[in-house]
């Protein structure tokens, strides 16, 4: 397929802790097409950030290791590339916006220098042109006094401004694939609305494919075309956004959707999923959600469920739907 941007197949990532090895991501597969926004949802510890870091080959090794699987970007297997070749793709064709705007910028360099660095590394522009491009990028992300901000240090900016700078850096080389790991989590709602608006605009303009990693279902509903729900290192459900919100199948997805307070209707009590997310090193035979699942049946205890295709492009990992 021509417009396939990113394909992940059977990705398994292990981490080593003292003498134990455990898989944080267990054989997950998905794809993102050109101009599409795929949401990756889950709670902390479900492996969503590890997945996005793996795509960029930024998993610290050791303790982490990609033990199996393929990550194909436009047909090229990223895992087999040399570090030098990977550097050409990273920040240029695929770029990433990290969660923490407070800590992802170097405090000792000006905003301008950090922006220029990316541009100079990946393009043939001269320093002067790079500066022009940087200022243009800052304006694009809605920073009003771009020239002034260009010369400032990160600590002089607010969180919202820093996140916008991060986005400007991420977009400086017009990437074709953008990985945004909780891009708005640290921000206030009014600033979040501005940033989401900006990302949507960019997608429409440049047909960038976006992988949006988040735990905020509101953001997902607003931004994504398709959604993947992860639980304890596995994909438990995948569907287009409308189906996921209006016809969720997996008990975990349903529980998540019911447990968020909602502005439109007032419930006396919120639904809550009992128990807690298992830590990655616990060995659970059968379904990993079983202990917290209100609908668990005997089979869930013994057999590990596979991803079942319920309808076209709607899959779910649950025994309830097996014939």
């Amino acid at each position: 397929m021509q417009d396939m941007m990113l394909e992940v197949k059977g990705l398994t990532v292990q981490f080593r802790n003292e003498d134990k090895e455990y898989s944080v991501v267990k054989g997950i597969s998905f794809h993102v097409k050109k101009g599409e926004t795929l949401g990756l949802v889950g709670e902390s510890g479900c492996g969503k950030s590890v997945t996005s870091l793996s795509i960029m080959r930024l998993i610290p090794t050791p303790p982490g290791k990609i033990v199996s699987g393929e990550i194909r970007y436009k047909g090229v297997d990223l895992l087999s590339l040399k570090e030098k070749e990977m550097n050409k793709i990273r920040g240029n064709e695929i770029s990433m916006i990290f969660q923490e705007p407070m800590t992802s910028l170097t405090p000792v360099f000006t905003i301008g220098r950090q922006l220029d660095e990316v541009i100079l590394l990946h393009t043939d522009l001269t320093k002067k042109q790079a500066k022009e491009r940087s200022i243009e990028m800052l304006k694009l992300v809605g920073i009003s006094r771009a020239e002034q901000i260009y010369a400032s240090y990160p600590h002089e900016l607010s969180g919202g401004m820093r996140q916008r700078v991060m986005i400007a850096i991420g977009l400086a080389c017009h990437p074709q694939m953008l990985i945004a790991d909780e891009p708005t989590t640290a921000l206030d709602v009014t600033i979040q609305a501005q940033i989401l608006d900006l990302m949507r605009e960019l997608k429409e303009k440049t047909q960038t494919a976006i992988l949006l990693v988040t735990h905020d279902l509101g953001v997902v509903a607003e931004m994504c075309d398709r959604v993947i729900v992860m639980y304890a290192g596995e994909i438990v459900e995948e569907a287009d956004v409308d189906t996921l919100f209006h016809n969720p199948k997996h008990p975990y997805t349903r529980g998540l959707l019911e447990s968020i307070p909602n502005l439109e209707e007032k419930k006396r009590r919120l639904f809550s999923i009992a128990g807690q997310v298992p830590t990655p090193d616990t060995v659970i035979p059968g379904c990993r959600f079983r202990d917290r699942c209100p609908d668990a049946i005997a089979r869930c205890e013994q057999e590990h469920p596979e991803l079942l295709e319920l309808e076209q492009s709607h899959t779910c990992r649950c025994w309830l739907y097996a014939e």
Binding site: V189, Q192, D216, L217, G218, A221, E222, V241, F245, L257
Partner: peptide
């Protein structure tokens, strides 16, 4: 008003 309008609704429709 703007604060309330800025909250993303958990419903794509």
């Amino acid at each position: 008003q703007s604060l309330l309008s800025a909250i993303p609704a958990a419903d794509p429709r």
